[in-house]
Design a protein around this nucleic acid. Structure first.
Lengths: 120, 120
DNA sequence: ATCGGTGCAAATCCTTTGCATTTCC
DNA sequence: GGAAATGCAAAGGATTTGCACCGAT
């Protein structure tokens, strides 16, 4: 059976408190302030577990970044500053759940551009 | 000025001839049959150049996989077999080019599920 | 007391990079 | 001839893993 630990609690609590889609490294640094001995391995193991359970989603790669908001939404990635913004667009619901290829269980939408702070 | 080399030609020619969204490693192995001395470094450098020029797109990560079809389309990723299928859905055109956050230059849509071959 | 979780370090995977050599214009 | 590209090998970043110890149930 899966156990509850202070490490898991700290990671999930931190993720639920931010809207910045932090990387494993950022999560590591943040959680380390509360739990000074937590390791990278533990961070990665916890993130993988939470992802599998569907409690968080991965919203970017290289490095992976995480989001505790699992409601259907897209992400705007600023190509200048790297920030990731949530996009709740009504058209997202039009994504077909059944395609000719197979049944869609979940999806990811990334919009790439420049955010307002970075011009245009 | 950028030069034309047999390595670049071979990579682009290979990518245009397949619909499988190969990884750098697969491209490396395939192109190596024609050019036995080509290296990983060269493959990665060429792929990055083609990507910057917009002649190919990257359609997955870890490892990166590539597609010489740059028309707007989504990708269905089978979570069982790992295959990536092109999805030309008409609703894709509804993706907003302007959002409150910024101007969208391009986008990526990933649909995750099981393909027909893998059941359901 | 058990056995799942953690911490640490080493290992692995993918990708990039430095540099000497080759090759295209 | 000279700049750009290649090949090779080494380095780099992100993530995973093996194992001894710790701690939740």
């Amino acid at each position: 059976m899966e156990r509850s630990t202070i490490q898991k609690q700290a990671v999930l609590e931190y993720l639920k408190g931010v809207k910045t889609h932090p990387s494993a490294e950022i999560i590591f640094s943040a959680v380390r302030k509360k739990l000074p001995t937590i390791s990278h391995g533990t961070i990665y193991r916890i993130l993988n577990t939470l992802k599998q359970k569907g409690e968080i989603i991965e919203v970017a790669k290289e490095p992976a970044r995480f989001d505790a908001d699992t409601s259907p939404h897209a992400h705007f990635v600023c190509q200048d500053c790297g920030k990731i913004y949530d996009v709740f667009d009504k058209n997202i619901s039009l994504i077909n759940k059944k395609t000719k290829i197979g049944k869609v269980q979940n999806f990811q939408i990334y919009l790439y551009g420049q955010c307002r702070k970075c011009g245009n």
